[in-house]
Amino acid sequence: MNGLYSLKPWYADRLRPVRHLLVARAVSPHLISAAGVLAGAAAGLTLAVLRPGPVAGTAVFVLLALRLALANLDGAVARETGTDSRFGSVVNEIGDRLAELFALAGCVVLAPAALVAVAALAASTPSWVSLAGAAAGGTRLTGGPMGKTERCLVLAIIAAVGWATPLLVVLAVGSLLTVLLRLWRLREVLPC
């Protein structure tokens, strides 16, 4: 059920030189989280400003790949420097949600605003379920058929081809399916 999330260890290994550089330069994990929000916002702005096509698709893909890298690096740098904290986890989660919402907001020029709002709500819900499960004593679930990485890929495809309405429907339905699967997994591990 982990989808593209299963590539995270491989991706984290590729980011090791960048992580070491950030640690050597004493870059704050909170600053890295903030940069991830800016990358998400830049992707949303790109979606809103550029006409769908190869340039927009490539730009959004690069910006969202940067956003995912920064989402990986903030926690990794915090752990490596011994500055990880519960508050840092809160900053990380808020940063992830804001980056994604800002990126999705760029679709408002390509699709009905109500659909963009529904897709944004649906995209946030898998994280809420995972956080609620962790708060109840379960594990922090990740991945799924429409996890964070897949949602970024859908946005890059929207930027490349412009099919915002059908792809936002796919994103919303896939996110809700991810919610159901995560709830099912939590039901299996948490006592009633």
Score class of each variant (00 low, 15 high):
104 L>D: 12
84 D>R: 03
116 V>P: 12
123 A>R: 03
107 C>G: 07
134 A>W: 10
142 T>M: 12
33 S>G: 05
143 G>H: 01
162 G>W: 00
60 V>I: 06
116 V>W: 12
165 T>L: 11
105 A>M: 11
76 A>E: 14
100 E>H: 06
30 H>Q: 09
115 L>K: 07
103 A>G: 09
136 A>K: 13
73 L>F: 06
108 V>H: 10
55 V>L: 14
70 L>P: 13
171 L>G: 10
50 L>E: 02
159 A>V: 05
34 A>L: 13
29 P>V: 03
125 T>W: 14
47 L>R: 00
56 A>H: 00
46 T>E: 02
55 V>G: 02
44 G>P: 06
134 A>C: 06
113 A>N: 07
52 P>L: 03
107 C>Q: 05
80 E>H: 06
121 L>A: 15
91 V>F: 10
166 P>H: 04
94 I>S: 05
38 L>D: 01
133 G>Y: 12
37 V>I: 15
46 T>F: 02
74 D>T: 09
54 P>F: 08
103 A>V: 07
148 K>F: 10
168 L>C: 05
154 V>K: 02
111 A>Y: 07
104 L>G: 12
69 A>D: 04
93 E>D: 15
51 R>Q: 06
38 L>M: 09
76 A>C: 07
77 V>D: 08
57 G>H: 00
122 A>V: 06
49 V>P: 01
95 G>L: 11
98 L>Y: 15
149 T>R: 03
164 A>T: 02
156 A>G: 14
164 A>M: 02
114 A>G: 13
160 A>E: 08
137 G>L: 10
52 P>E: 03
61 F>T: 08
141 L>K: 03
68 L>W: 01
132 A>R: 13
171 L>D: 08
98 L>F: 15
110 L>M: 09
137 G>Y: 11
53 G>P: 02
122 A>L: 07
157 I>A: 14
97 R>E: 09
153 L>R: 00
55 V>T: 09
36 G>A: 06
131 L>W: 03
79 R>F: 08
39 A>P: 02
113 A>C: 09
154 V>F: 07
161 V>Q: 06
33 S>P: 05
31 L>T: 14
66 L>H: 02
93 E>G: 12
34 A>V: 08
66 L>C: 13
61 F>G: 11
56 A>Y: 00
78 A>R: 00
32 I>E: 01
97 R>M: 12
140 R>M: 14
170 V>L: 13
160 A>L: 14
168 L>Y: 02
30 H>Y: 09
102 F>E: 01
